[in-house]
Design a binder for these strands. Sequence first.
DNA 1: TATATTTGCAACTGATTGGTTGCGGTTTAA
DNA 2: TTAAACCGCAACCAATCAGTTGCAAATATA
Lengths: 104, 104
Amino acid sequence: MRRDVFQAIADPTRRAILSLLAFNAMTPNAIAEHFDSSRQAISKHIKILAECQLLNQEQTGREIYYHFNPQKMQEVDQWVAQFREQWEKRFDQLDALLKKQKNK
Amino acid sequence: MRRDVFQAIADPTRRAILSLLAFNAMTPNAIAEHFDSSRQAISKHIKILAECQLLNQEQTGREIYYHFNPQKMQEVDQWVAQFREQWEKRFDQLDALLKKQKNK
DNA sequence: TATATTTGCAACTGATTGGTTGCGGTTTAA
DNA sequence: TTAAACCGCAACCAATCAGTTGCAAATATA
Protein backbone atom coordinates (compact mmCIF):
# COMPACT_ATOMS: atom_id res chain seq x y z
CA MET A 1 0.00 0.00 0.00
CA ARG A 2 1.65 3.16 -1.24
CA ARG A 3 0.63 5.81 1.19
CA ASP A 4 2.70 8.95 1.06
CA VAL A 5 1.76 12.59 1.19
CA PHE A 6 2.27 13.18 -2.53
CA GLN A 7 -0.03 10.35 -3.48
CA ALA A 8 -2.58 11.67 -0.99
CA ILE A 9 -2.75 15.18 -2.44
CA ALA A 10 -2.88 13.89 -6.01
CA ASP A 11 -6.66 13.60 -5.78
CA PRO A 12 -8.64 16.85 -6.19
CA THR A 13 -11.32 15.76 -3.70
CA ARG A 14 -8.67 15.07 -1.06
CA ARG A 15 -7.11 18.47 -1.70
CA ALA A 16 -10.53 20.05 -1.21
CA ILE A 17 -10.97 18.15 2.06
CA LEU A 18 -7.61 19.44 3.29
CA SER A 19 -8.54 23.02 2.41
CA LEU A 20 -11.81 22.52 4.22
CA LEU A 21 -10.13 21.20 7.36
CA ALA A 22 -7.25 23.66 7.34
CA PHE A 23 -8.97 25.93 9.83
CA ASN A 24 -11.79 23.81 11.27
CA ALA A 25 -11.83 20.25 12.54
CA MET A 26 -14.89 18.40 11.23
CA THR A 27 -16.68 15.05 11.39
CA PRO A 28 -16.92 12.77 8.32
CA ASN A 29 -20.62 13.49 7.86
CA ALA A 30 -20.06 17.25 8.01
CA ILE A 31 -17.25 16.94 5.48
CA ALA A 32 -19.32 14.78 3.14
CA GLU A 33 -22.07 17.41 3.06
CA HIS A 34 -19.69 19.70 1.20
CA PHE A 35 -19.33 17.26 -1.69
CA ASP A 36 -21.51 15.47 -4.21
CA SER A 37 -19.86 12.13 -3.49
CA SER A 38 -21.38 9.66 -1.09
CA ARG A 39 -20.44 9.50 2.58
CA GLN A 40 -18.50 6.28 2.00
CA ALA A 41 -16.49 7.73 -0.85
CA ILE A 42 -15.51 10.71 1.31
CA SER A 43 -14.81 8.39 4.22
CA LYS A 44 -12.35 6.48 2.09
CA HIS A 45 -10.56 9.69 1.17
CA ILE A 46 -10.41 10.65 4.83
CA LYS A 47 -8.95 7.26 5.67
CA ILE A 48 -6.17 7.76 3.14
CA LEU A 49 -5.44 11.24 4.45
CA ALA A 50 -5.36 9.91 8.01
CA GLU A 51 -3.11 6.99 7.09
CA CYS A 52 -0.44 9.30 5.80
CA GLN A 53 -0.95 11.55 8.83
CA LEU A 54 -2.22 14.59 7.01
CA LEU A 55 -5.21 14.26 9.34
CA ASN A 56 -5.43 13.40 13.03
CA GLN A 57 -8.47 11.91 14.76
CA GLU A 58 -10.14 13.14 17.90
CA GLN A 59 -12.93 10.91 19.08
CA THR A 60 -15.69 12.42 21.23
CA GLY A 61 -18.51 9.96 21.88
CA ARG A 62 -19.67 8.50 18.60
CA GLU A 63 -18.33 11.41 16.61
CA ILE A 64 -14.83 11.66 15.25
CA TYR A 65 -13.33 15.03 14.54
CA TYR A 66 -10.59 15.14 11.95
CA HIS A 67 -7.87 17.77 12.35
CA PHE A 68 -5.47 18.96 9.72
CA ASN A 69 -1.81 18.26 10.52
CA PRO A 70 0.36 21.08 9.11
CA GLN A 71 3.62 19.30 9.98
CA LYS A 72 2.96 16.65 7.37
CA MET A 73 2.12 19.18 4.70
CA GLN A 74 5.50 20.71 5.36
CA GLU A 75 7.04 17.66 3.72
CA VAL A 76 5.56 18.78 0.42
CA ASP A 77 6.81 22.28 0.98
CA GLN A 78 10.30 21.03 1.68
CA TRP A 79 10.36 19.00 -1.50
CA VAL A 80 9.14 21.91 -3.59
CA ALA A 81 11.76 24.13 -1.97
CA GLN A 82 14.54 22.60 -4.07
CA PHE A 83 12.94 24.17 -7.15
CA ARG A 84 12.10 27.53 -5.62
CA GLU A 85 15.45 29.03 -6.51
CA GLN A 86 14.70 28.27 -10.16
CA TRP A 87 11.57 30.32 -10.53
CA GLU A 88 12.90 33.12 -8.41
CA LYS A 89 15.90 33.29 -10.72
CA ARG A 90 13.60 33.57 -13.72
CA PHE A 91 11.59 36.23 -11.99
CA ASP A 92 14.77 38.23 -11.39
CA GLN A 93 15.65 37.92 -15.05
CA LEU A 94 12.21 39.13 -16.07
CA ASP A 95 12.48 41.94 -13.59
CA ALA A 96 15.81 43.01 -15.02
CA LEU A 97 14.39 42.86 -18.51
CA LEU A 98 11.45 45.06 -17.59
CA LYS A 99 13.72 47.63 -15.97
CA LYS A 100 15.87 47.66 -19.07
CA GLN A 101 12.81 48.26 -21.24
CA LYS A 102 11.67 51.06 -19.00
CA ASN A 103 15.00 52.91 -19.17
CA LYS A 104 15.05 52.95 -22.95
CA MET B 1 -7.10 11.71 -19.06
CA ARG B 2 -6.42 13.48 -15.78
CA ARG B 3 -3.17 15.28 -16.25
CA ASP B 4 -2.45 17.84 -13.60
CA VAL B 5 0.71 18.73 -11.72
CA PHE B 6 -0.34 17.05 -8.49
CA GLN B 7 -1.03 13.75 -10.19
CA ALA B 8 2.32 14.07 -11.98
CA ILE B 9 4.38 14.47 -8.82
CA ALA B 10 2.53 11.67 -7.04
CA ASP B 11 4.92 9.10 -8.49
CA PRO B 12 8.34 8.81 -6.80
CA THR B 13 10.13 8.06 -10.09
CA ARG B 14 8.68 11.20 -11.65
CA ARG B 15 9.76 13.24 -8.65
CA ALA B 16 13.28 11.86 -9.05
CA ILE B 17 13.25 12.80 -12.74
CA LEU B 18 12.25 16.35 -11.85
CA SER B 19 15.04 16.62 -9.30
CA LEU B 20 17.44 15.30 -11.91
CA LEU B 21 16.34 17.83 -14.51
CA ALA B 22 16.09 20.77 -12.14
CA PHE B 23 19.52 22.04 -13.09
CA ASN B 24 20.40 20.12 -16.27
CA ALA B 25 18.37 19.44 -19.39
CA MET B 26 18.77 15.82 -20.47
CA THR B 27 17.73 13.34 -23.16
CA PRO B 28 15.41 10.39 -22.35
CA ASN B 29 18.26 7.89 -22.66
CA ALA B 30 20.48 9.87 -20.33
CA ILE B 31 17.63 10.12 -17.83
CA ALA B 32 16.86 6.40 -18.04
CA GLU B 33 20.46 5.55 -17.20
CA HIS B 34 19.88 6.93 -13.72
CA PHE B 35 17.11 4.44 -13.01
CA ASP B 36 16.60 0.69 -12.91
CA SER B 37 13.46 0.95 -15.03
CA SER B 38 13.53 0.42 -18.77
CA ARG B 39 13.85 3.27 -21.26
CA GLN B 40 10.19 2.90 -22.21
CA ALA B 41 9.00 3.07 -18.64
CA ILE B 42 10.98 6.27 -18.10
CA SER B 43 9.79 7.58 -21.44
CA LYS B 44 6.21 7.19 -20.29
CA HIS B 45 6.94 9.15 -17.13
CA ILE B 46 8.59 11.86 -19.20
CA LYS B 47 5.54 12.01 -21.44
CA ILE B 48 3.27 12.57 -18.45
CA LEU B 49 5.56 15.27 -17.08
CA ALA B 50 5.65 16.96 -20.49
CA GLU B 51 1.88 16.76 -20.93
CA CYS B 52 1.30 18.73 -17.77
CA GLN B 53 4.09 21.14 -18.76
CA LEU B 54 6.46 20.36 -15.95
CA LEU B 55 8.93 19.61 -18.74
CA ASN B 56 9.57 21.36 -22.05
CA GLN B 57 11.11 19.74 -25.12
CA GLU B 58 13.99 21.01 -27.20
CA GLN B 59 14.71 18.94 -30.26
CA THR B 60 18.21 18.98 -31.71
CA GLY B 61 18.66 16.47 -34.50
CA ARG B 62 17.52 13.06 -33.33
CA GLU B 63 17.95 13.96 -29.68
CA ILE B 64 15.34 15.60 -27.53
CA TYR B 65 16.41 17.56 -24.49
CA TYR B 66 13.88 17.89 -21.72
CA HIS B 67 13.99 21.03 -19.61
CA PHE B 68 12.40 21.55 -16.23
CA ASN B 69 9.73 24.27 -16.16
CA PRO B 70 9.78 26.01 -12.76
CA GLN B 71 6.64 28.05 -13.53
CA LYS B 72 4.50 24.95 -13.42
CA MET B 73 6.00 23.75 -10.14
CA GLN B 74 4.99 27.08 -8.70
CA GLU B 75 1.39 25.91 -8.91
CA VAL B 76 2.15 23.33 -6.23
CA ASP B 77 3.88 25.94 -4.13
CA GLN B 78 0.89 28.24 -4.39
CA TRP B 79 -1.46 25.53 -3.25
CA VAL B 80 0.72 24.58 -0.30
CA ALA B 81 0.97 28.26 0.63
CA GLN B 82 -2.56 28.26 2.06
CA PHE B 83 -1.33 25.93 4.80
CA ARG B 84 1.99 27.62 5.45
CA GLU B 85 0.51 29.98 8.03
CA GLN B 86 -0.59 26.95 10.03
CA TRP B 87 2.78 25.37 10.60
CA GLU B 88 4.43 28.72 11.13
CA LYS B 89 1.89 29.43 13.82
CA ARG B 90 2.71 26.15 15.50
CA PHE B 91 6.38 26.89 15.21
CA ASP B 92 5.85 30.23 16.94
CA GLN B 93 3.96 28.48 19.71
CA LEU B 94 6.76 25.99 20.15
CA ASP B 95 9.25 28.82 20.07
CA ALA B 96 7.36 30.67 22.78
CA LEU B 97 7.18 27.52 24.87
CA LEU B 98 10.91 26.94 24.59
CA LYS B 99 11.65 30.51 25.62
CA LYS B 100 9.35 30.12 28.57
CA GLN B 101 11.16 26.94 29.63
CA LYS B 102 14.49 28.67 29.28
CA ASN B 103 13.52 31.58 31.51
CA LYS B 104 12.36 29.34 34.32
C1' DT C 1 -34.88 -1.09 26.53
C1' DA C 2 -35.79 -0.17 21.72
C1' DT C 3 -34.58 2.95 18.02
C1' DA C 4 -31.91 6.27 15.44
C1' DT C 5 -27.39 8.29 14.45
C1' DT C 6 -22.52 8.18 13.43
C1' DT C 7 -19.00 5.69 11.73
C1' DG C 8 -15.70 2.11 10.01
C1' DC C 9 -14.97 -2.30 7.54
C1' DA C 10 -15.37 -5.78 3.74
C1' DA C 11 -16.69 -7.30 -0.82
C1' DC C 12 -17.41 -6.15 -5.39
C1' DT C 13 -16.89 -3.49 -9.97
C1' DG C 14 -15.14 -0.59 -13.61
C1' DA C 15 -11.39 2.60 -14.62
C1' DT C 16 -6.66 3.92 -14.29
C1' DT C 17 -1.76 3.12 -13.67
C1' DG C 18 3.01 1.48 -14.19
C1' DG C 19 5.43 -1.60 -16.67
C1' DT C 20 6.84 -4.66 -20.73
C1' DT C 21 7.31 -5.85 -25.61
C1' DG C 22 7.33 -4.92 -30.38
C1' DC C 23 7.36 -1.70 -34.10
C1' DG C 24 8.23 2.24 -37.15
C1' DG C 25 10.12 6.93 -38.12
C1' DT C 26 13.95 10.08 -38.14
C1' DT C 27 18.78 11.39 -37.78
C1' DT C 28 23.64 10.29 -37.59
C1' DA C 29 27.70 7.58 -38.81
C1' DA C 30 30.29 3.99 -41.49
C1' DT D 1 23.45 3.48 -49.13
C1' DT D 2 23.39 0.60 -45.35
C1' DA D 3 23.58 0.14 -40.38
C1' DA D 4 23.20 2.00 -35.84
C1' DA D 5 21.29 5.20 -32.48
C1' DC D 6 17.50 7.89 -30.55
C1' DC D 7 12.91 8.20 -29.74
C1' DG D 8 7.67 7.97 -29.67
C1' DC D 9 3.45 5.15 -30.36
C1' DA D 10 0.28 1.16 -29.69
C1' DA D 11 -1.06 -3.16 -27.64
C1' DC D 12 -1.10 -5.80 -23.82
C1' DC D 13 -0.96 -7.31 -18.60
C1' DA D 14 -1.02 -7.25 -13.60
C1' DA D 15 -1.80 -4.22 -9.80
C1' DT D 16 -4.03 -0.49 -7.79
C1' DC D 17 -7.72 2.91 -7.18
C1' DA D 18 -12.21 5.35 -6.66
C1' DG D 19 -16.70 4.45 -5.96
C1' DT D 20 -20.97 1.66 -4.57
C1' DT D 21 -23.54 -1.42 -1.59
C1' DG D 22 -24.35 -3.92 2.52
C1' DC D 23 -23.39 -4.63 7.26
C1' DA D 24 -21.93 -4.41 12.11
C1' DA D 25 -20.22 -1.80 16.21
C1' DA D 26 -20.67 1.99 19.29
C1' DT D 27 -23.09 5.93 21.15
C1' DA D 28 -27.04 8.88 21.88
C1' DT D 29 -32.03 9.52 22.31
C1' DA D 30 -37.00 8.24 22.99
